[in-house]
Design a protein around this nucleic acid. Structure first.
Lengths: 213, 213
DNA sequence: TATAAATTTTGTACAGTGTACATTGTGCAG
DNA sequence: CTGCACAATGTACACTGTACAAAATTTATA
């Protein structure tokens, strides 16, 4: 190796993104912001990453991994493994709404994504699903987790509005709507709660595994 | 009313957005692009719409409506009503990937969204679900539709790569991955097909409606 | 009918964004 | 010690959404 020493590497950059997200979880990190946080000029990042999309992909990989895909192949019953990972991934995303767009702005290739897919597939296989249906079920679970997180992030209230206040506002809006929805405003206004998320994936799993039907 | 006549209105602007999406379905329309398409300076739009988010909301409303929420309360069996609307909405979104971000960048308030929620709730109620579970199920269905569309849009190949080619590339990538996924590469590579989408919502519905279990 | 008031549209501008290109500087191989 | 390969920078460009003041236009009133 010739040339000057590299001052950074991809993990350090990903880490900077996470630090930005820790400071302001709702703000979508920007290339220039990351560079500034690292005390470096924006174009320096292009030494380590071909473009913004690649950086986003690296962050996605990190977060998929942070949620601990290991639990998917652990010793717990298959259902708890699936819901466990889903809940953890959801939690990581809701803790960083600003990172959610990264998951939906490019394909999820990469080893961690493959690992998650493999783990979900293993769990569904253990549940008795044929391989093809297992693949479909695994994909459906990811759709549900990412979809929920994206919709929750989309409904985030502005700066400094308490969650409780947000629910109250939402409930009022729903109560003023069509009759059937108005009648369940209490439930519908809290759709981004953990309980309702658990209800959702569990129903999805119920439907995917025929031995439960 | 004094002042000069208005040259536009919100429907005309929404229509311009749809025309831009028709020209290039994958491109996310921009305020300036819409203004140019209407032969008007960018800031003119601010007479009709407070900000970009509001315009996006109007487009979302239009597309939710375009998918025909009327079918949700029609005479067909409840299951066909749900899958019917889900399939149509999905189709409208996949035909305009550039509009998908609009659905996930702000809350879905508005009459059409309420109508869709009401229709889904009615269908699930007819299926025998208690109201609270119906609300949860309705939300889960929207999560699935929007989640699928978003993930499909995220995986869109660049300009001028045939879908068949894309599937082939994806299959090759999957086949090189972990064993279980590699074994079902054929199925997994086509996850954004209509069949697999139908499989997904149908499994979700199965899980949501206890009389089917 | 002339004037004033209201309101749409525009001109101009600013603070951002990602990224391309040429330049400068650093550090190891010869 | 020299030269080369590469990292980091300076500068720049085409974009984005949006704010503000000026201009243009229409209608209601004097």
């Amino acid at each position: 190796m010739k040339g000057p020493k590299r001052s950074l590497d991809v993990p350090k950059i990903v880490n900077a993104v996470l630090e930005l997200l820790a400071e302001d979880p709702a703000a979508v990190p920007t290339l220039r912001g990351v560079a500034a946080h690292l005390g470096v000029r924006p174009n320096t990042l292009y030494t380590y990453v071909p473009d913004r999309a690649a950086l986003e992909g690296a962050v996605v990989e990190h977060l998929l991994d942070l949620a601990g895909p290991g639990v998917l192949t652990g010793g717990a019953p298959w259902r708890e493994r699936i819901t466990g990972y889903a809940l953890r991934l959801r939690a990581e995303l809701l803790a960083r709404p600003g990172a959610v767009p990264f998951f939906l702005s490019g394909p999820m290739t990469g080893p961690s994504a493959a690992l998650v897919g493999e783990g979900l597939l293993a769990a569904f296989t253990e549940a008795g699903l044929p391989a093809a249906d297992g693949a479909r079920a695994a994909y459906a679970v990811m759709v549900h987790v990412l979809g929920s997180a994206a919709m929750a992030a989309a409904d985030l209230p502005g700066p400094e509005v308490s969650p409780a206040e947000a629910v109250r506002t939402r409930r009022a809006a729903l109560a003023a709507g069509p009759p059937r929805i108005a009648a369940v405003a209490d439930v519908a206004a809290a759709w981004n709660s953990v309980e309702q998320f658990e209800w959702g994936i569990n129903r999805l799993i119920d439907g995917c595994v025929p031995s439960l039907r």
